[in-house]
Design a protein around this nucleic acid. Structure first.
Lengths: 206, 206
DNA sequence: ATGATTAGACGGACTGGTCAGTCCATCTTC
DNA sequence: GAAGATGGACTGACCAGTCCGTCTAATCAT
C-alpha cells in the first residue's frame, strides 16, 4: 500500500460539504446533462465518496433541483442589484436587458441546466425558471405601467403584452446564443435591442 | 390459445411501416421524453415488434432525430406556403410571425421534441432547429433589406440584428407559452406583437 | 384455380452493460 | 474509547439492441 492508494478522509462542516457537492454537481450536470451525469463522477469531483453525497442530498433529482435553484438565485440577484436602485423605468428596462444577457454570457452552463430541468422533469409542473419569473413579473409589469402613466409609452400598448414580449425575447436570445453557437455577443448589443423594442424597426410615420 | 393471444402479422410496404413507426415515435418521445421512451412502447404503439422498428431505424437515436427532422419540415412548410406568395415584405413578416406561433400552438409536442434533442445530444453540434433556421435565415434577412431599400425601415437599424431579434422572440415565445403553461394564446396576439416590433412601445418622439 | 415452396418480414424473449442507491468496514475526531 | 462521518464495493432494476423461430404472401407448377 502506497500513500497514493490511501485517500485522505476529512470530516468537514455539513454546510461546506453541501456547497462543495453542489458546485461539483453544477459543473457535471451542465457538462454532460442530467442522465449522463453519474453520481460517482459528481462525488469524485467534489472530493468525496458517494455515500457522503447521498447524506447531503437524498437523491440525484434532489441534488439536481438544488443546482437549478442556486443558478436562479444568482441570476435574480445579478439583475436586481443593478436595476432596483434606478429611478427611471425606461433605464431599468434598458439595464435589466443588459444585465440579463450578460449573466448568461458569463454563465452559459446555466442555460444548460434549464434545458435539462425541463427535458428530464416535464412532469414536475412548471420549470423553476418560470416560477421565478412569475415572482418578479409583477415588478416589471409595474414599470411598464409607470411608463404609461408618465405618458411616455403608447397607451394602446398593453403593459402585460409588452412585458411578455420582453421576457420572451430575452429567453429566446439566451437560448439561441448558446445553442446556435456561432452568433456574436448579444450582451454587447443590448442597447440596440432595447432601442428596437422602444422605437420599433420602422421609420416614424411620415 | 384464443384469437386474442395471436397477434395478427401483416407485411406492409416499407414506407408505410416507416411512417407508422415515425408517428408513434413522435407521440411517445414528446409524451415521456427521450430517455423514458422505451423502444418496446414505441413498437407497441406502432403496432409492430421491436425487431421491425429496428429494421426501419438503426438505433433509438436515429429514430429520434428522424422525428425531429420531420417536425422541422412540417414547420418550414407551414410558414413558407403562406408567406412566399406575398409581395410586401412587411406583410410577409407579419404573417410569418402569425403562422409560426400558430404552428406551435397546434403542435405543442414539437417544442418538446426540440427540448429533448438539445438536452440529450448536446455533443451532436448545433441542434437541427438552428440548422434549419440558418437555411431560411437568408430569405428573411433579404426581406428586412428590402424594407430599408424601400425607405420604410430605419436605416440605422441593422437588418441582421432585426432578424435575430425577431427569431429570438418567436423562439422564446413558443417555449414560454408551452413551459409556463398558464399564458394565453400568443398566436391570437400575433398582430399586436408585430405592431410592437414595427413601431416600438414608446410614443413617437414629440 | 389451387396447392407447394420459400424469401424474407415479423415479433418478442433474451442478453449484457449501465448506474442509482444501499450498506458496512474503516477512519477521524473529540 | 465511542460516536458518527466517510468512501466505495455491491446489488438490483432497467432497457437498448440482438437473434432466431414463426408466419405471410409472392411465385410458380400443375
Amino acid at each position: 500500500m502506497t500513500d497514493s492508494s490511501r485517500p485522505t478522509r476529512t470530516h468537514k462542516a455539513p454546510e461546506q460539504r453541501r456547497r462543495e457537492v453542489l458546485e461539483a454537481a453544477a459543473v457535471v450536470f451542465a457538462e454532460v446533462g442530467y442522465r449522463c451525469a453519474e453520481m460517482d463522477r459528481i462525488a469524485e469531483r467534489a472530493g468525496a465518496g458517494k455515500g457522503t453525497v447521498y447524506r447531503c442530498f437524498a437523491s440525484k433529482e434532489t441534488l439536481f433541483m438544488a443546482t437549478v435553484e442556486k443558478a436562479l438565485e444568482d441570476l435574480t440577484c445579478y439583475v436586481n442589484e443593478a436595476v432596483d436602485p434606478l429611478e427611471d423605468p425606461l433605464e431599468q428596462l434598458r439595464l435589466g436587458i443588459h444585465r440579463y444577457l450578460e449573466f448568461f454570457e458569463c454563465n452559459p452552463e446555466t442555460v444548460e441546466l434549464f434545458i435539462q430541468e425541463r427535458a428530464e422533469f416535464p412532469k414536475n409542473g412548471k420549470p423553476l425558471y418560470f416560477v421565478y419569473q412569475e415572482t418578479s413579473g409583477g415588478k416589471w409589469r409595474a414599470r411598464f405601467e409607470k411608463l404609461i402613466e408618465q405618458g411616455r409609452m403608447r397607451p394602446d400598448m398593453s403593459p402585460a403584452l409588452a412585458q411578455e414580449v420582453f421576457s420572451d425575447l430575452l429567453y429566446g436570445a439566451v437560448f439561441s446564443q448558446l445553442l446556435a453557437g456561432d452568433r456574436e455577443s448579444r450582451a454587447e448589443r443590448a442597447d440596440e435591442i432595447s432601442e428596437l423594442l422602444f422605437r420599433g424597426i420602422l421609420k416614424p410615420e411620415s
